[in-house]
Amino acid sequence: MRTPSGHKVYAMAAEYPTPHALYEAAKAVRDAGFKRWDVYSPFPIHGMDDAMGLGKSWLSAVVLAGGITGLLTAVILEFGPSWILYPLIVHGKPYTWRTVPAFFPIMFEATVLFSAFAAFFAWQIMNGLPRWYHPMFNWERFKRVSNDGFFLAIEARDPRFTEIEARELLERTGGQHITIVHED
């Protein structure tokens, strides 16, 4: 979708005066059936994920996978050499699987480390990061988002998006300074 002047449309966006107004607007947009839209605020708003109709995040599953990978890595790297490849008696300890207490700290650390890596990178990817520039910043008012601005944007790639319907919905929910935001 393009504007008459030839710019590609990113979204229809509006500013809201309070977090509560934004919260109520999010519920209205959710109920209107839009899928590709987002809210922007300077701080997290309690209950917003429910108001936006977001399901449970996949992050926990990725972190679990990372943790299991870390655990298995430690198990292989410890038991492989010390039990199978080069069995040695160290500190008078057994060199069978019974030496496992000595290996637990490393297993624990590797589990935590890999979980943390998985969490960090999966979180970046899920948020579309890293990116150099976000189209929302094409809107001058949006610069207040890190200060005192509360914004909602319905994106043009939403299959239900039409300029008229999006504008009407934002107006109905009390949005101010409703505008089209350009992609580039």
């Binding site: 500190h91 008078g92 300890k93 207490p101 000595a102 637990f104 700290p105």
Partner: peptide, 12 residues
């Protein structure tokens, strides 16, 4: 529990 066990087990 593990910290208590491991330190005693290791020091022997």
């Amino acid at each position: 529990g593990f910290s208590q066990y491991m330190l005693i087990w290791y020091a022997n």
